[in-house]
């Protein structure tokens, strides 16, 4: 017999648990791939919404309004299917132009074999990676709209006088945008962006609904008393596994909160705001 400490050391390091720990990497990967992509999307949308050219402006506004207007997680469940079918359909029309059967046959979405994305005979990991990137893209689109909204507001919050000064010095539109507006807008955007970041962290369990083997999937498989993925017989321990996940998320949000408050301080330096003024006085 093993004593409690040794037993736990053994139990928590068996093969299935290492797969569980790996799935945490999936969550981190999702967040750290999605965040910059969403920020880029949002920046593009915000810049487009300020464009002097009407079609571009409309496009930027339409994107933010559209995603924000559609309620709830239905978007997540829906968009992945639609995206998947859209990709397969476009490949299908290119590769199999003389396909005569209908593509929608009742419940089934049937395209020719050459148009399967990823190809039907590819190994399991290709399918998983493909699904993961579909999910990342969906997250990036949704959170890009959130970021776009925040950044658009931040760009408008930069004092008008700053831009007028830049123009008075003879800067062009482009120069004003990149040298004056963009460096100054981050401090106004930060509260909104940290909010979006927190929402992004809390949205990660929804990966489970998209059929990806993430931490929720593994917590259910390992904790359940008899599942296909984990043969070890034990009573229902799912509560403890979910408690672990809860603690993981709490730590993650706490660390983010601290990091973001530091970042706020750092960005306030030299800004024409109250916080920036306080920092300047403290230094002087």
């Amino acid at each position: 017999m093993l004593d409690t400490g040794q037993w736990f050391a053994c139990y928590l390091t068996n093969g299935a648990h290492f797969l569980f720990y790996q799935s945490f990497l999936v969550v981190f990967a999702l967040i750290f791939v999605t965040a910059p992509t969403a920020l880029a999307f949002g920046f593009g949308a915000a810049a487009a919404s300020r464009s002097p050219i009407l079609p571009i402006r409309l496009l930027g506004k339409l994107y933010t309004a559209m995603v924000r207007g559609v309620p709830d997680i239905a978007f997540f469940l829906f968009f992945v299917i639609v995206l998947d079918q859209l990709i397969e359909y476009s490949v299908h029309t290119i590769r199999c132009p003389d396909w005569s059967e209908p593509i929608y046959q009742g419940a089934n979405f049937l395209v020719c074999d050459a148009a399967r994305v990823p190809p039907g005979n590819s190994p399991q990991w290709v399918h998983e990676t493909y699904n993961f990137f579909l999910a990342v893209f969906t997250y990036a689109i949704v959170f890009g709209a959130f970021c776009g909204n925040v950044l658009f507001g931040a760009m408008r919050a930069v004092p008008r006088a700053q831009l007028e000064t830049a123009e008075a010095y003879g800067m062009s539109r482009r120069q004003t945008f990149w040298r004056v507006l963009v460096p100054q807008m981050w401090i106004y955007a930060l509260p909104g962006l940290s909010n979006v970041w927190m929402i992004l962290i809390k949205a990660t369990p929804l990966l489970f609904l998209l059929g990806i083997e993430d931490i929720v999937y593994w917590a259910r498989e390992l904790g359940g008393s008899r599942t296909s993925a984990y043969q070890y017989p034990h009573p229902d321990w799912r509560f403890w596994y979910f408690l672990g996940l809860l603690v993981f998320y709490l730590c993650f949000t706490r660390v983010s909160e601290i990091a973001l408050s530091r970042l706020t301080r750092r960005l306030s330096r030299g800004q024409a705001t109250m916080a920036g003024e306080d920092l300047r006085k403290a230094a002087a």
Binding site: P205, V216, A219, L245, R254
Partner: peptide, 13 residues
Amino acid sequence: GSPLFIQFFMAYE
């Protein structure tokens, strides 16, 4: 600080 989704799962268990 934690997702509602996880709270539901945990509360049920």
